[in-house]
Amino acid sequence: MRGGLWQLGQSITRRLGQSDKKTIARRCYASEADLKKTVLYDFHIANGGKMVPFAGWSMPIQYKDSIMESTVNCRENGSLFDVSHMCGLSLRGKDCVPFLEKLVVADVAGLAPGTGSLTVFTNEKGGAIDDSVITKVTDDHIYLVVNAGCRDKDLAHIEEHMKAFKAKGGDVSWHIYDERSLLALQVTILEKSQGKVRLTGLGARDSLRLEAGLCLYGNDMEQHTTPVEAGLTWAIGKRRRAEGGFLGAEVILKQIADGPSIRRVGLFSAGPPARSHSEIQNENGENIGEVTSGGFSPCLKKNIGMGYVKSGLHKPGTKVNIVIRGKAYEGSVTKMPFVPTKYYKPT
């Protein structure tokens, strides 16, 4: 997870790029020329973007300002991100909602048109195939975005279930938006921020999502992690908890009833920032879990991290030790998000 100074800039690529182990293996043999470029590649270069390989794409990790400045500016004013490496698709048809509800834990039927939610695609064992943001455009049109590194497996998964669904007479079809490119704009108040919204790269994006307590798929959530363990029980709609009907529902509903054996928690710690795979110990030095993401928070100016610990030791305020390069540093379990998210909620 770390290299010498001569590998500068590579570490984060590796850390961020963990979302797809296969891509990483491939990347080791792939030359820069094999990386895919978004339509904004030249625009990034012209604006001083420092390009790095990420999930098979050449993406800007930062522009001319530092990750620290960039992160803080996003919260104070705003950021424009090129997220066109991610995969956007639409599901259409009068049965698109019941179809999607077989694959994700969200109460899609209960979403008002024009609103969205974070959700999780689950497998038969209740583990997460990917996390995704879904938007209900209308009752017969859902738009969703999945991770770049999970694209192939997600699309294969959706396609397989769509074939079976249609064979039984269900009305659903999809469209993958490869002819378009996706941008993300995150702002506070546009008037105040005019002239201060900046192009923002993967580096700040990782700091921002960590401060917001959001999982990075591949680091904080994997095939074997259930949404309950990941602290995403809130994303399982009330009706879905009562009815089930999604892949792995038996496992997940049992975990909601009995409590999971491990839980994702937020961590503050002293010393060097905890990084993924740092061991978490209790005060007696016994192993209780592992850090999955960590770094220095540009907004809080201190170390933050997240990881999984045994249930019972997950309560905010629980004292822990985090082992970094063989030394134990004091830390404590804390609530997430670390920085208030201030999501826009239409009134």
């Binding site: 904004l40 973007g49 001319k64 400045e69 424009l80 941008l183 900046r198």
Partner: peptide
């Protein structure tokens, strides 16, 4: 490259900047 042009004009409209290091 239509999107690039769109992004550039949006960048201008928002007066987006990629910031400068002091």
């Amino acid at each position: 490259m239509a999107l690039r042009i769109w992004a550039s004009s949006t960048a201008n409209a928002l007066r987006l900047s990629s910031a400068t290091r002091p």
